[in-house]
Simulated scan of single mutants.
Amino acid sequence: MGNMNMGNMMKQMKQMQKKMAEEQQALNSQTFVGESPEELVRATFSGDRRLTDVDIDPKAIDPDDPDMLNDLVMAAVNDGLAKVEKATQDTMGKYTSGLGL
Rank of each mutant, 00 (worst) to 15 (best):
K19C: 07
R50T: 07
P58V: 13
D64G: 14
N8L: 15
V54T: 15
G98M: 01
G98P: 11
V41N: 10
M1K: 11
T44I: 05
R50I: 00
M9Y: 10
N70R: 09
M9H: 10
P37C: 06
V54M: 08
L99R: 02
I56F: 05
L81H: 08
E23I: 09
A87S: 07
N5L: 15
M16H: 07
S46A: 08
K86P: 02
M92K: 05
N5H: 12
Q30V: 01
G34L: 07
M10Q: 15
G100L: 09
T96H: 01
V84C: 01
V41M: 13
M20H: 03
F32V: 04
D67T: 13
R50W: 09
R50M: 04
R50Y: 11
L81P: 00
D62V: 09
M16D: 11
N78G: 09
Q25V: 05
L72Y: 13
E35K: 09
S29P: 00
S46C: 10
M4H: 09
Q12K: 05
D57C: 06
K14G: 02
A76P: 14
M74K: 12
N28Q: 00
A43M: 05
K86R: 03
D62L: 06
Q25I: 02
T88P: 12
M10V: 07
I56H: 05
R49M: 14
E39F: 12
A21E: 06
M16K: 00
A21W: 01
R49K: 14
T44H: 13
Q24H: 15
M4C: 04
M68W: 05
L101R: 03
D65M: 13
R42D: 03
M13T: 05
T52V: 13
N78I: 09
K83L: 01
D64H: 11
L27R: 02
L27N: 01
M4N: 12
D65T: 02
T44C: 11
S36V: 05
Q30P: 10
N3F: 10
T88L: 03
V33T: 15
L69S: 04
A26W: 02
M16A: 12
K83C: 00
D53I: 04
L81T: 01
P58G: 10
Q17A: 15
P58N: 08
M13G: 07
A82M: 12
L72K: 09
M92P: 08
R42E: 14
E22C: 02
M68K: 10
I56G: 08
L101V: 04
K83H: 00
K18D: 08
K59G: 13
Q15R: 07
N8S: 13
K59M: 08
N78H: 07
T96I: 09
T88C: 02
M4S: 12
E23K: 03
Q15D: 08
A43T: 02
A26D: 04
G100S: 07
P58Q: 09
L99K: 06
F32E: 00
Y95W: 03
G2H: 13
N70E: 15
E35H: 11
V77I: 15
G100W: 06
A60L: 11
V84S: 03
A82G: 05
L27M: 12
L40D: 05
D55I: 04
Q15G: 13
K83T: 03
D64S: 06
N8W: 08
